[in-house]
Design a protein around this nucleic acid. Structure first.
Lengths: 235, 235
DNA sequence: GTCTTATGCCAACACCATTGACCTTAACTC
DNA sequence: GAGTTAAGGTCAATGGTGTTGGCATAAGAC
């Protein structure tokens, strides 16, 4: 039976699988992440992950409560990777920009996990550490508590929101993604100027820009406004 | 065979199914939306949709190119609902705010569908109409093409991104959502001030603000920056 | 060496999307 | 009205998925 998942720290016996690998939560999560990146949008399945590990699919249920539990564990890992090695410089705007791009990037490196994870409040240690760091940057920069919380909220949600949005296409099959991108050329660029003067006038610019993430621009706009508010309050 | 999907307007024969219902693209999309709302996004399957319509699952492939095509059609429907009855006032900032809140709201009315469709480019008429309208507002306000496209991109993606993010919790069961929200009180508010001084100092403000969408704030910040850029360019 | 049981494996179940072949009948032609 | 065509239904089958109950065996305790 697969009901009882033993927590990692309580595991004592490590019986190798038929093909000789010795499993662990860490190994499984890492293998899953590698599969998601390499096989890309084809995605993660218990069967394939089992095959990659040299283990029967059902063995995974000894480590996680279903595929959902596995994805949550992956999410934890992503936050950790975003924060790993990061250190504040003391320049609040630079720090927020760097942190935002790190979070966004870490999620996008693993789109399927990002889609499932981005909107959940886990309350786990690494997420809390990130929140504490962001609030610290804002309050250290001189924002009042009220402003700091308001900006923090917009900042973190915007980062996660764009991560989820941008992960969407990456999580699709190659075919579906290609047809989405191509649509900017095939459909939009060919609209008659009479009916759609504004799209027609900017078609070239749209095709060039739309396949890329708007997150950097949106982030910069948010930081702009924050900086302006700080200056106004200080004046 | 299911290869040839006949476009809706070219359909002529309407043979009723075995159980007597007469199918149409519209009926299928509406039924799918209802199912998604009632049973969650995981509850939408070709088999179940077929059953709900009183038709064989394979019949759907006469109307859509697989479930993916159906998903795109649902997204198109949501955009249409956002635009229905909207009319520009001529004040660009008010118009963009109103439109953004409408789109955000229309998606949130169907959280599960929002999760599925927010990141997809459909290239269908109503989506194109929305894009044309937004670009028109920006260019009409006096933004150059380059700026208009940049702001348009950040604006539409921000709206959809927040729609998807905010839809996440709504798509959960009541119990899971409640426990997510409660975490701001139960976990964050109780962190010792020594380890997490910034969270501790703002715990009350966080608990009050985090359960609500940051989209209005983020939108306003984006509009702020756009307005300032317009003023700078005009000066 | 013996016992316990954690942990891996196997087989099976119920679901899923999708497709090719078939058949019914609506709609068009004369 | 009779005849023809093919749209648009149905059926059956394929190969995928997550998940579970039962079983076997080796790791570790004594």
């Amino acid at each position: 039976m697969a009901k009882n998942v033993v927590p990692e720290e309580a595991r004592r016996r490590r019986r190798p699988t038929r093909r000789g690998t010795v499993l662990s939560e860490k190994l499984i999560v890492e293998t899953a992440l590698r599969m998601v990146r390499e096989h890309g949008s084809a995605g993660l399945s218990a069967r394939r992950l089992g095959a990659a590990l040299g283990a029967d699919p059902s063995t995974l249920y000894r480590y996680f409560e279903g595929m959902d539990g596995l994805t949550l564990a992956i999410g934890e890992e992503l936050i950790g990777r975003a924060l790993a090695g990061w250190a504040p410089t003391g320049r609040w705007r630079d720090d927020l920009r760097a942190l935002g791009l790190r979070i966004h990037g870490a999620y996008l490196a693993h789109p399927q996990a990002a889609l499932l994870t981005a909107s959940r409040v886990t309350g786990r240690p690494r997420e809390i550490a990130a929140d504490e760091a962001i609030l610290g940057i804002l309050r250290g920069a001189g924002f009042g508590d009220e402003d700091a919380v308001r900006i923090y909220h917009a900042y973190i949600d915007q980062s996660l929101a764009f991560a989820a949005l941008d992960a969407g296409p990456l999580a699709l099959t190659d075919k579906a993604r290609a047809s989405d991108e191509e649509r900017w050329e095939s459909t939009y660029a060919r609209l008659p100027a009479d009916d759609h003067p504004n799209i027609a006038a900017t078609a070239r610019l749209l095709a060039a820009r739309m396949p890329h993430s708007a997150y950097p621009v949106a982030l910069e706009m948010l930081l702009d406004t924050a900086e302006r508010q700080l200056a106004d309050a200080g004046a």
